[in-house]
Design a protein around this nucleic acid. Structure first.
Lengths: 134, 134
DNA sequence: ATTGAAATGTTATGTTATTACATTAATTGC
DNA sequence: GCAATTAATGTAATAACATAACATTTCAAT
C-alpha cells in the first residue's frame, strides 16, 4: 500500500499543503518557518515528511537548489514514472516539470554502454522562462 | 583569455591537483583538509578556487552529492562543450563523464517547446558500476 | 488488550556555503 | 617605471542545509 493511497499523517499533510500552495520551490527551512504556527519546531519534522512525500512521488527534490516542489501531476502517482526532468527559471524561480521517456531511455543506454546501471536520474535545466526573457 | 590558457594561481593549482590526484569526487571540506599542510585555513580558499576552475571547465560540480571532480578530459577545454552528464556509482563512488550532444539537444528542444531557454544543464545518474554489481 | 512498526518530539551536532572586510599580487595604461 | 585598476588572497564570523541519537507517542494488526 503506497503512502499516496493511505492517508497522509498530520506532518506530511502540512508539509505537502505548504508546498502545493506555494508558487515555486521551497527550502526545508522555509517550510519549517511557515509551519511554526502549526507547532513545527525542528528541521527534522520537515525532513522526515519530505522523505516520505518524495518516496511517494508527491514531492520532488531539486538537487541544484536544495529545494523541494510539489509534483505537478497531483492525480497520477509520480513514483511510477521514471525520470523527472525540470526546467528552473533563474529569473522568477518557476519550475516546469517534464516526463521524457525517450530521453530517459537514451541516457540509460548511454550509461549501459559503459556497463553502468542507472537507478535514479537527476535532470535539471537552468535558464529563463518566456516571461523573464523579455 | 581563458583561465585554462593563462597559468593557474597557486591556490587554483593546489585545488586542481588535489582533485586530479584523487580517485573520485571530493567535497570542498575534504579538499580543505588535504591542503592544510599547504597553508589552507578557510573554506573560502577552496570555494574560490573551485569557482574559477569550474568556470574554466577544468572541474565539475556534482550537484547530487555536493562534491567536485576534475574533468575527465584534461586536454580539451570542457567549457566549450555543452552539457556534461555523469554516472555516479553508489557502491564505490566512481564517476563516469559523458558528453552527449544529441541528448543535450533533445532536452533543449523539450524545454523550448515550453518556451524555456536553458543555459545550463545538470544530468546525474546514480546507480552501480559493473564491479559493484557483482 | 498486546505487541510491533511507524511517526513524532527534542536536543545537539555535523556538513556545506557565503558575507564582509582587510590585504596583497598581478595587469593595464600612460 | 609608476599610478590606477582589477584579480586574488587571508581571515573571522555566520548563514544555510542536513542528520544523529534517543525518548515518547500513535496506530494498525493480531
Amino acid at each position: 500500500m503506497t503512502i499516496a493511497a493511505r492517508k497522509l499523517t498530520r506532518n506530511q499533510s502540512l508539509v505537502f499543503d505548504c508546498l502545493a500552495e506555494s508558487e515555486g520551490p521551497m527550502s526545508a527551512y522555509t517550510i519549517l518557518d511557515r509551519l511554526r504556527d502549526h507547532g513545527f519546531k525542528a528541521p527534522l519534522q520537515v525532513y522526515r515528511a519530505l522523505d516520505k512525500l518524495t518516496e511517494a512521488g508527491m514531492v520532488h527534490r531539486l538537487e541544484s537548489m536544495n529545494a523541494y516542489v510539489a509534483c505537478a501531476h497531483p492525480d497520477e502517482d509520480c513514483s511510477h514514472h521514471g525520470m523527472t526532468a525540470f526546467a528552473i527559471c533563474e529569473g522568477c524561480g518557476a519550475v516546469i516539470e517534464f516526463h521524457a521517456h525517450e530521453i530517459e531511455h537514451a541516457l540509460a543506454a548511454l550509461a549501459e554502454s559503459r556497463k553502468f546501471k542507472p537507478e535514479r536520474m537527476t535532470v535539471e535545466m537552468r535558464g529563463l522562462c518566456e516571461a523573464c526573457r523579455r
